[in-house]
Structures are given as structure tokens and as C-alpha cells.
């Protein structure tokens, strides 16, 4: 099962395939988020795809590798200003639509990844105690 050894990660096949496809997943997420104005997609969808890319790293390489790439402080530093710009854009209506989509993407990606980290870390202790 996937969660038997959460610190080690999965087999070498999964790690290699993840290393090859990760850039494409990130590019696809950014594309879906940026071109939401003229084609299907939107900021939220792109943000969820970005969050899924980091979840993918976490499942394949284990917890430490993903947390090394995206620290909690970085999450906090990125999420706050993005939310502020988004709020400003909604309140005034002056911020361009693309910047609003990028802000929404960043907020959603970091927020969902933070939830995932919280859930995985929360269940660590009771697995050790069993």
C-alpha cells in the first residue's frame, strides 16, 4: 500500500516517472489557470492541478522531499500577499483579470497543499503508536 512507509516514498519506477512528468503537470496547471478567459479552465482549476502536483511529489518521494521544496513559511509568505491582491481586485475592479487568475491559482494551490500536509502530519503519531 501507499501509506505503509510514508517517509521513504514509493518504488524507483514511480520516482522516475514522477521526475519526468512533474514539469508537464505544472505547465498544464499554469496553462489551464492562465487561459481561463478564452477557453475552458479558470484560476481555481489551475490551482487544484498545482496542488495535485505537489501532492504527487509527496506521495512519490515521501514527506521530507516535498516539504523541502515547499516550506510552511514559503506557503505563508506567498499566500498572504496573493489573497490581499485578490481582495483588492474584487473591491476596486482595477486589477487585470490575468493577475486575478494568478492570485487565485496561488491561493488555491497553497491552501489545498497546506490542508493535505496538515492531514498527513496529523495522522503520523497514531501510526507510530500502533
Amino acid at each position: 500500500m501507499v501509506y505503509k512507509s510514508p517517509n521513504k516514498g514509493m518504488t524507483v519506477i514511480v520516482k522516475t516517472v514522477t521526475r519526468l512528468t512533474l514539469a508537464f503537470i505544472l505547465i498544464y496547471g499554469i496553462y489551464i489557470g492562465m487561459t481561463g478567459g478564452v477557453s475552458p479552465g479558470g484560476g481555481f482549476t489551475g490551482g487544484v492541478i498545482l496542488a495535485l502536483a505537489f501532492v504527487h511529489i509527496m506521495l512519490a518521494f515521501g514527506k521530507e522531499a516535498a516539504l523541502r521544496k515547499l516550506r510552511a513559511n514559503t506557503l505563508r509568505m506567498v499566500m498572504g500577499p496573493a489573497a490581499f491582491i485578490f481582495l483588492l481586485g474584487v473591491a476596486t475592479g482595477r486589477v487585470p483579470e490575468e493577475i486575478g487568475a494568478i492570485c487565485e491559482m496561488v491561493i488555491v494551490g497553497t491552501g489545498l497543499f497546506a490542508i493535505f500536509i496538515a492531514l498527513v502530519l496529523a495522522s503520523k503519531s497514531d501510526r507510530n503508536s500502533e
Partner: peptide, 13 residues
């Protein structure tokens, strides 16, 4: 769904 799963995990703990 995410919030309910968090609550469920806490109840299990």
C-alpha cells in the same frame, strides 16, 4: 469534504 475528513481523523484519534 476536506473539513469533514479532518474532523473524522480527529474523532478516530
Amino acid at each position: 469534504t476536506l473539513f469533514l475528513v479532518a474532523v473524522a481523523i480527529r474523532i478516530y484519534e
